[in-house]
């Protein structure tokens, strides 16, 4: 049951395209005690049907950008092959630590992005409400 719930939560985030795996893998390893490699392959496999169905919805909303898609995938493939070959061979503990650092970097990025969005939203708002333009730093 917890597996389904973890999948549901991660699926919502995945469908929005902001990295459900980043939620699913910690959930699986921390709360359900699954080892790092297993959590990673669960995430990869779970992602296939989830992304397929999310893409269908996006297609209906016409959110897809076709241009540049294929070369991105083609250049991604050698990276993906190398990365997963390393992941399969490496010690689970190191992988877990590496993943945690990766997550931390992502967390930092997301929070700064959110902060910037908030700031620009607020300055836009104040620009429209007051006539006097405020000098912006950047």
């Amino acid at each position: 049951m917890w597996y389904v719930l973890a999948g549901l939560a991660a699926g919502i985030v995945s469908g929005m395209g902001i990295g459900g795996g980043a939620i699913l893998i910690p959930a699986l390893t921390i709360f359900l005690g699954i080892n790092q490699q297993n959590a990673q392959h669960i995430n990869l496999l779970y992602f296939i049907p989830t992304a397929l169905i999310a893409l269908r919805v996006h297609k209906k909303n016409d959110n897809n950008e076709k241009k540049g898609l294929l070369p991105l995938i083609l250049w991604g493939l050698p990276g993906a092959i190398t990365g997963s070959l390393i992941a399969v061979k490496i010690d689970a503990n190191y992988l877990r630590k590496g993943f945690a650092i990766f997550l931390l970097a992502m967390a930092f990025y997301e929070i700064t992005k959110g902060y910037q969005k908030w700031k620009s939203q607020r300055s836009n708002h104040s620009k429209t409400s007051s006539k006097k333009p405020t000098p912006t730093e950047k």
């Binding site: 991660a10 995945s14 469908g15 395209g17 669960i42 496999l45 999310a54």
Partner: peptide
């Protein structure tokens, strides 16, 4: 996990 993920995927894509 996939069963949950599929449902979540639809919700997430619609919410976006």
């Amino acid at each position: 996990v996939s069963a949950g993920g599929v449902c979540g995927g639809v919700i997430g894509a619609k919410l976006l």
